[in-house]
């Protein structure tokens, strides 16, 4: 019965979102008003809002939060946490079991992790939970995880691999002109080598098993 209620609620949200999609997001010509996306955070927000315009799923609350973040570039942990909690409430109402949530302090900012399981699915696949997430928090999560703070932390994690990446170039006959270059540029610089040397350096970098927590 609970599940039916959730679906009815979900349909209601869809209808509501369909009625309000575009408020303050798209102009009559279908283009987004200012600001034009210039940061990864703005890009991902705009992409998600556009996706939602095409297939409305987000709650009004999530859309409003995203527009706020788009305008200011600021996203707080509380905004992120509130959005995730709404997702988890929705999933619990749908009958899913939740493990967590846990706040993890591993990177430049705290993040929230959790597990979920749908007892009604043979493998526990939480499709309903991911649906709830689309409605309530996925966009806000993406805005948070692509904030300047998060990207700086990713850069910090990558810096640990710099000496090994530099060695991949040097040891394969393609020493870098500037070993202090931007780490993201360095990761992709092998493309400019062309030919088999590019492939060798790429393989070397891949073998480093570089891993980051987004």
């Amino acid at each position: 019965m609970r599940r039916v209620n959730v679906f009815v609620l979900g349909l209601g949200v869809l209808v509501l979102a369909g009625c309000t999609a575009g408020i303050g997001v798209t102009g009559s010509d279908g283009t987004l008003p200012t600001p034009s996306p210039t940061t990864p955070q703005q890009e991902v927000i705009v992409a998600m809002l556009r996706g939602d315009d095409a297939q409305p799923t987000m709650s009004d609350e999530q859309r409003e939060t995203l527009l706020e973040i788009l305008a200011t570039g600021e996203v707080t942990f509380e905004q992120y946490q509130d959005a995730v909690n709404r997702t988890l409430d929705c999933a619990t109402d749908a009958g899913l079991k939740i493990d967590g949530p846990r706040t993890v302090d591993q990177g430049g900012q705290p993040t929230i992790t959790w597990g979920w399981s749908d007892p009604a699915q043979p493998d526990g696949d939480p499709k309903l939970g991911e649906y709830c997430r689309n409605v309530h928090s996925l966009g806000v999560e993406q805005a948070y995880l692509n904030s300047d703070v998060a990207l700086e932390d990713e850069r910090r994690q990558l810096e640990a691999y710099r000496p090994q990446i530099v060695a991949c170039y040097a040891d394969n006959g393609a020493p870098l002109d500037d070993p202090d270059m931007d780490i993201f540029d360095m990761l992709n610089d092998y493309e400019s080598l062309g030919g088999t040397r590019a492939g060798i350096v790429e393989s070397c970098i891949n073998e480093l098993d570089i891993v980051v927590i987004p």
Binding site: E43, G100, G115, W116, G129, L145, V211, P214
Partner: peptide
Amino acid sequence: TWFWTAMTYKYLPSAGIGYVSPNG
């Protein structure tokens, strides 16, 4: 119980980097 972690999404992933699904 067996659980799935929530999907970890990465926007504009860089080649050569592994993006982690965090410990559950």
